[in-house]
Each structure stands twice: as structure tokens, then as C-alpha cells.
């Protein structure tokens, strides 16, 4: 075990945790309010481990949506992970199966984005992903459990939900000055606004795919932009 790289992964993911804690608390509190057993709520964070999808799932279930609808929502909201998996497949091929399974379970938006630069540049990257993944996993579980048993002790007035888009923005700032990346970002963002009211938060994966088609177009037609 390479502790130095493991700690680097932990350190890199720390700023991302700011919105994870209040989100986990809200998930725990809302789960109780919707009438779920505390043990079910806690287990859902262990088994699914995907905040936005879990929230959509318990809301749909509690209003009596069919199992098919609830599971479709899980699939639609989490389908963006297919793209993360496609990116990582380029680097993971030599990893033993147990590592592929473990790092897949721990794969989140935040762990993907903070570890990707390290994965691209270093051979022994698995401990970086383990560090970022385990840290986010642990904080998500602890905040879900705290939400269930202690309630939402972080003042709502702080508006920490807003920390989600801000931490995500912070993951993109290194690419902002690259015109090709900027075009892809704007296409994705504008698409998400236009597609926002479609069901199942389909706008996330749909906007991402539209933006990737634009990226493909840029690569094919504007080679100088995309070196």
C-alpha cells in the first residue's frame, strides 16, 4: 500500500466534502419524514451510494410510484457513471479484478474528477482513487447516519446546497482557458437548462452526450483547437 498516494487522494477530495455533509444529513432527515425505517435509509446509502439518485428514489417510492419508475430513475440519474467508466477503462485494464470491483463501487462524480488528473499521469494511481473514494464514502455514510439519529444540525440559512455547483465548478477551472473545452462546457450547460423539465433528470446524461458529440465535431473539423 502506497500511503503517500492514498493520503494525496484524501487531501484532494477534502474540499468536495463541503456539500456532501449537509446533503447526507438532509437525506437522513427526509428519509425519516417520508416514513422509511432508519435501518432502510442507512442501508440505502451503503448499497446504492449515489446521493442524487437515492433522493429521487425515496421520493418516488414514497409517493407510490411503480418499482419500474423508481428503478428507471436510478438508472437515468446514474447513467453518467457509464462515461466515467469509459474514461477509466483506458487505465484500469491491468488492475486485478478485486480492484476494479472496489474502485467501481467507490466511483462518484467527485472521486472521478479529483483523481482523473492523477490517474492520467501516474502508474500507481489506484491508491489515489482509493483515498478519494473511501473518504467520500465514509463521509456520506456518517452524514446519512447522523441525519437519521441527530437530525439536520447544520443551519439551513447557510445555503450549503449551493456548494454543490461551486465545488463542481472548481473541478473545471483548469480547463476554462481552453477554447475547445469551454465550447463543450457551454453546450452542456445550455442543453441542461433546455432539457431540465424532462423526467428522471434525464438532462444530465442527455446534455453530456450532446456535448460529447460537439467535442467529436471539434476534433474532426478544428484540429488546431483540440491538440
Amino acid at each position: 500500500m502506497n500511503k503517500k498516494i492514498f493520503y494525496q487522494g484524501i487531501k484532494d477530495v477534502l474540499p468536495m466534502l463541503i456539500p456532501v455533509v449537509p446533503f447526507g444529513l438532509i437525506y437522513g432527515v427526509l428519509g425519516l419524514e417520508l416514513g422509511f425505517d432508519p435501518f432502510v435509509i442507512i442501508a440505502s446509502s451503503f448499497i446504492i451510494f449515489g446521493g442524487a439518485s437515492q433522493l429521487a428514489f425515496i421520493q418516488l417510492y414514497s409517493i407510490g410510484a411503480s418499482p419500474f419508475i423508481a428503478l428507471s430513475s436510478i438508472a437515468a440519474v446514474n447513467s453518467r457513471h457509464l462515461l466515467y467508466g469509459a474514461v477509466f477503462s483506458q487505465y484500469f485494464s491491468f488492475l486485478p479484478l478485486r480492484w476494479k470491483l472496489l474502485l467501481s463501487y467507490l466511483l462518484t462524480d467527485q472521486a472521478f474528477a479529483v483523481s482523473l488528473p492523477f490517474v492520467q499521469k501516474n502508474k500507481d494511481f489506484k491508491y489515489h482513487l482509493l483515498g478519494s473514494g473511501v473518504t467520500l464514502w465514509l463521509i456520506w455514510q456518517v452524514s446519512t447516519i447522523s441525519g437519521v439519529f441527530l437530525g439536520n444540525f447544520i443551519p439551513q440559512e447557510l445555503g450549503l446546497a449551493f456548494a454543490i455547483p461551486i465545488t463542481f465548478l472548481s473541478l473545471l477551472v483548469k480547463e476554462l482557458k481552453k477554447i475547445d473545452h469551454l465550447i463543450v462546457m457551454i453546450v452542456s450547460g445550455v442543453s441542461s437548462i433546455l432539457l431540465y423539465h424532462f423526467p428522471f433528470k434525464i438532462y444530465i446524461i442527455a446534455s453530456a452526450l450532446i456535448a460529447l458529440v460537439v467535442a467529436y465535431f471539434l476534433i474532426k473539423n478544428f484540429k488546431r483547437l483540440t491538440v
Binding site: 462515461l83 473545452h181 462546457m185 452542456s188 450547460g189 442543453s191 437548462i193
Partner: peptide, 13 residues
């Protein structure tokens, strides 16, 4: 381009 294509779709809304 995956990070640049996915994250704005979660940021903008």
C-alpha cells in the same frame, strides 16, 4: 472531454 461535458449539466441547473 467527459468532465467538461458532464459537470456543467449538473452545475447550470
Amino acid at each position: 472531454y467527459v468532465p467538461s461535458a458532464v459537470f456543467p449539466a449538473m452545475i447550470f441547473p
